[in-house]
């Protein structure tokens, strides 16, 4: 009993909807069941066994939407063995519950707090420097990496089952994450300098200087625990106030 390649591709397509019905009790349970259902239909022609199989995948599941693809692939690996009678029916669920936390941590730590913000910062800098083509190019590169890894994890999970853990370890994602974050911070600093230039050209040197000061001191305030949205209102008022003050001082001197 194996799942045909066409069905695997369908499962991968459906895995892109993992969080469509995210809910408090089961979190991504509906998304996971939706994704794996075509594979279960292929493995269990008997209605009762298919019903049982889908029921076990309606239980709690939550992971990072990208790295969950590895678990989805690995779960099909285990379901094939359950269908052949080589493994107990509890194995796929045990596999999911064992890997979901660690792979969520990898996904959050690499994709959500390193790779995506890095490309976001790069797109923002590029957009300010050269306009929309930079946004298109940056997003294209991000998604090349994103989809290649997402599909690769799904395929390797399906081929190797438990062996996916060693594969993910070899990717050394936490090490890359660290470098990407440092590079991202660098891009943010450069953007602040670009704002000095932009502000000076568009609205007078003072506007550029205000942007630079906001970037330098805002960072300290945010690290100190200032809340983001209120800080935005405060800094806008402070910036306008500084400009008013400077104009007055300049006018009276």
């Amino acid at each position: 009993m194996t799942v045909p390649t066409r069905t695997l591709l369908r499962v991968f397509w459906r895995s892109l909807f993992l969080q469509a019905a995210w809910n408090r009790r089961g979190m991504q349970n509906l998304g996971f069941a939706y994704a794996i259902d075509p594979a279960l239909a292929a493995l269990y022609p008997e209605p009762e066994r298919r019903r049982e199989a889908l029921a076990r995948h309606l239980g709690f599941f939550n992971c990072h939407p990208y790295t969950a693809a590895a678990i989805l692939g690995g779960t099909i690996y285990h379901e094939e063995r359950v269908a052949r009678g080589e493994e107990p029916a509890g194995n796929p669920v045990l596999y999911k519950s064992t890997l979901q936390g660690p792979l969520a941590a990898i996904g959050d730590g690499f994709f959500w707090t390193a790779l995506r913000p890095f490309f976001g910062a790069l797109a923002a800098l590029g957009a300010l420097a050269v306009g929309w083509p930079a946004v298109v190019i940056t997003l294209a590169i991000y998604n090349l990496v994103h989809l290649a890894l997402r599909y690769g994890l799904f395929r390797d999970g399906y081929r190797k089952g438990d062996g996916i853990v060693a594969d993910v370890a070899r990717l050394a994602l936490p090490v890359f994450a660290d470098r990407l974050r440092v590079a991202g911070a660098f891009v943010c600093g450069l953007t602040a300098a670009l704002l000095l230039w932009r502000g000076a050209l568009q609205a007078g040197f003072l506007s550029g200087a205000v942007a630079l000061a906001a970037a330098a001191f805002g960072y300290l305030a945010l690290l100190g625990g200032a809340r983001l949205l209120p800080a935005a209102y405060v800094i806008v008022v402070a910036g306008v106030g500084a400009a008013l003050f400077a104009a007055r001082w300049h006018g009276s001197s």
Binding site: L99, G101, P102, I106, V165
Partner: peptide
């Protein structure tokens, strides 16, 4: 093994 994956 999985637990150590995500550690910085």
């Amino acid at each position: 093994a999985a637990m150590t994956l995500a550690l910085p």
